Simulated scan of single mutants.
Amino acid sequence: MSAADGPARGHTAATLYEAAVAAEGPGRYAMDVGIRATWPGARVAAPAFTVQGAGGDNLALQHAILEAPAGSVLVADVNGADWGHWGEVLAVASQFRQIAGLVIDGGVRDTVEMAELDFPVFSRHVSVRGTRKLFRGALGVPVQVGAVTVHTGDLVVADADGVVVLPQHVADRVLDTADERVAKEADIIRRLKAGESSLDIYGLAEAGRG
């Protein structure tokens, strides 16, 4: 399956953020900038499976690996805690279950190993500290991750620029708007390569003049 056939139609997080604002108006579609890729080139686009865990404990994540549908991305709230809640062992277990990746408001470790596995992870911290395994947490419930409320089934798109979450009821409209934006941008790039200026293309030549 090509990227264009995937859940995000091949669109980047930045494109989808702009499309969401254009299609739905101002809203909280992007996680805060503290949630970022743990290794260069990490990228994921998949429906969310949400995890409410606890800081310094990764038992909820281990249960989530067994419960999440294949093709989903785990989206976990562990209260921003800077323990290493996730590492190589859980990434390998997730790949066996065909889980697409992890977005976590907290810490992870083994980032080199996860890059070698090509398992995309987006987190607030990288930390060597291990965790306890006591709190089963809750799965499939609304969570707050990176200041965004995420529900199971929401479309999550994450790459080098950040993490965008599209609620299920707006995702198709936003994707259609993104398709239109990409087509327009392709024409703008063509015109720039032909020598036109961005000021002229966007009608900004007179902007800022009093």
Score class of each variant (00 low, 15 high):
residue 140 G to L: 02
residue 99 I to H: 09
residue 52 Q to M: 01
residue 27 G to K: 11
residue 65 I to R: 08
residue 114 M to Y: 13
residue 120 P to R: 13
residue 93 A to W: 06
residue 28 R to F: 09
residue 72 S to T: 11
residue 67 E to L: 00
residue 25 G to Q: 05
residue 33 V to D: 07
residue 89 V to W: 10
residue 104 I to W: 05
residue 35 I to F: 14
residue 69 P to W: 10
residue 33 V to K: 06
residue 115 A to K: 11
residue 119 F to C: 12
residue 57 D to N: 12
residue 77 D to L: 02
residue 33 V to F: 00
residue 52 Q to C: 01
residue 98 Q to V: 13
residue 128 V to K: 05
residue 89 V to E: 01
residue 64 A to P: 07
residue 47 P to R: 12
residue 135 F to S: 10
residue 87 G to V: 11
residue 86 W to P: 05
residue 141 V to N: 10
residue 110 D to S: 00
residue 133 K to C: 02
residue 141 V to L: 12
residue 70 A to V: 08
residue 107 G to L: 03
residue 49 F to S: 14
residue 140 G to R: 13
residue 53 G to N: 06
residue 140 G to W: 09
residue 28 R to W: 00
residue 24 E to H: 03
residue 29 Y to I: 06
residue 60 A to E: 01
residue 86 W to G: 06
residue 137 G to W: 05
residue 89 V to R: 11
residue 133 K to N: 07
residue 92 V to L: 07
residue 126 V to L: 00
residue 83 W to R: 15
residue 37 A to I: 10
residue 57 D to T: 00
residue 118 D to N: 00
residue 35 I to R: 06
residue 142 P to L: 09
residue 122 F to L: 15
residue 85 H to M: 03
residue 91 A to P: 04
residue 24 E to V: 12
residue 131 T to P: 10
residue 117 L to S: 14
residue 61 L to F: 01
residue 123 S to M: 12
residue 139 L to D: 11
residue 24 E to Q: 04
residue 122 F to P: 15
residue 58 N to V: 03
residue 68 A to C: 10
residue 47 P to M: 11
residue 31 M to K: 13
residue 23 A to M: 02
residue 57 D to H: 09
residue 64 A to K: 02
residue 49 F to W: 15
residue 93 A to I: 01
residue 127 S to V: 02
residue 113 E to D: 12
residue 83 W to G: 04
residue 60 A to Q: 04
residue 112 V to C: 09
residue 59 L to I: 03
residue 27 G to A: 15
residue 62 Q to N: 04
residue 119 F to I: 03
residue 25 G to R: 14
residue 54 A to Q: 07
residue 128 V to G: 07
residue 72 S to W: 15
residue 74 L to F: 14
residue 40 P to M: 07
residue 37 A to D: 10
residue 126 V to Q: 01
residue 109 R to N: 14
residue 129 R to H: 07
residue 82 D to R: 06
residue 104 I to R: 08
residue 26 P to I: 01
residue 49 F to C: 13
residue 92 V to G: 09
residue 132 R to E: 05
residue 114 M to A: 13
residue 28 R to H: 03
residue 99 I to W: 12
residue 25 G to F: 14
residue 36 R to H: 12
residue 118 D to M: 04
residue 114 M to N: 11
residue 51 V to Y: 01
residue 87 G to P: 14
residue 55 G to D: 08
residue 129 R to W: 15
residue 100 A to Y: 09
residue 49 F to A: 13
residue 126 V to N: 04
residue 73 V to P: 05
residue 39 W to N: 06
residue 55 G to H: 00
residue 142 P to M: 08
residue 39 W to P: 04
residue 62 Q to W: 02
residue 123 S to E: 01
residue 37 A to W: 13
